[in-house]
Simulated assay, not measured.
Amino acid sequence: MSVISFLPPQSPPPPIWSFAGQIYTQVGVATHLLSRQEQDQIWINDWLFALWLAHKGNTVAVDFRCQISAWQHWRDQVIVPWRRYRKRLKASSMAGDEKARRQYQRAKQAELSLEWHDQQYLWRHRSSLSAGPEPTTRDREQCLSLSLQRLSGASTDTLSDSVSLLLSALEACTDSASWSD
C-alpha cells in the first residue's frame, strides 16, 4: 500500500511528501530514523525536511525550534499519544491478536495522516523555517550536517552516520523532478 493512499482526499500532497516517502523507503533509512526517534527524541519529519533543504543547498533556520514551538506543542499533544497507542497495539498484534492487528492498522493510518499534517505545516512555512540564501555555496553534506546539529543539538561526530545514510538515500532516489517547490 502506498504512503500516498493515506492522504486526506481534499488536499494535494506537498512535494516534500513524495520526497520524504521516497527517502524513507530506501534501505536502512526507516530503521535508522526510528531508532534515532526512540533514542534521541528526534522528529523524523524535521530531519527529512532538513534533507530536502540540503538537497536545495539550504539549511534549517538557526531559530527553527523557537519558530515551531506552538506547532511542537500540537505534535506533543496529538502525534505523540497516537504514536504510543499504535506501539501498544503493535505489541498486541504481534502476539497474534487479530482484533489488535486491525486496530493497529487503523492507528497506523491515523498516525500517518497526522504526519502528513506535520509535513504540510513544514511545507507551508518553509521560507521562514529555512536559513534563506547562504552567502557561500555549501554542499549537501555541509547543509545537512549543520541542519541536523541545529535540530538535535548533537555534535558532527555523532551525526556522521545519519548524514551519510541520508545522503546515500538521496543519491539512490531517481524521481527528483517531483521535488520542486
Rank of each mutant, 00 (worst) to 15 (best):
K108Y: 06
A95Q: 08
Y121W: 15
K99L: 09
S93I: 05
W82L: 15
E111C: 09
L112I: 10
Q105P: 03
R101C: 14
S130G: 10
P135T: 15
P135E: 15
Y121D: 03
R83A: 14
Q105W: 00
H125C: 07
H117M: 05
P135D: 11
R126N: 01
R88H: 08
W116V: 05
K90Y: 13
A95H: 05
Y104N: 01
P135Q: 14
E115K: 02
R138M: 10
Q105N: 01
K108C: 02
K99Y: 13
L129I: 10
S93Y: 04
V80Y: 12
A100I: 09
I79D: 04
S127M: 02
P133Q: 15
A91E: 15
G132A: 11
L112F: 06
P135N: 07
R124V: 06
A100Q: 07
R101G: 07
P135H: 11
H125S: 08
M94L: 13
R138P: 00
Q119M: 10
E98N: 05
R102D: 12
R138F: 04
P133N: 09
W82I: 10
W123M: 07
R83S: 10
K87G: 08
D139F: 01
P135C: 08
S128N: 08
W82D: 05
R124L: 09
M94H: 04
Q77N: 12
T137V: 04
P81V: 15
A91K: 14
R86M: 10
K99E: 14
R102T: 13
R124S: 02
R102C: 15
L129E: 07
Q119F: 06
D97K: 04
A100K: 13
S113C: 06
K108T: 01
W123E: 07
Q120P: 02
S130L: 11
E115L: 03
S113K: 06
Q105I: 05
R138A: 14
D97L: 14
D97G: 11
K99P: 08
Q109F: 01
G96W: 11
Q109I: 02
R84K: 12
P135W: 09
Y85G: 09
Q109K: 03
K99A: 15
K87P: 04
Y121V: 10
Q105V: 02
M94T: 03
A107I: 02
S113A: 02
Q103R: 04
Y104Q: 04
K90A: 15
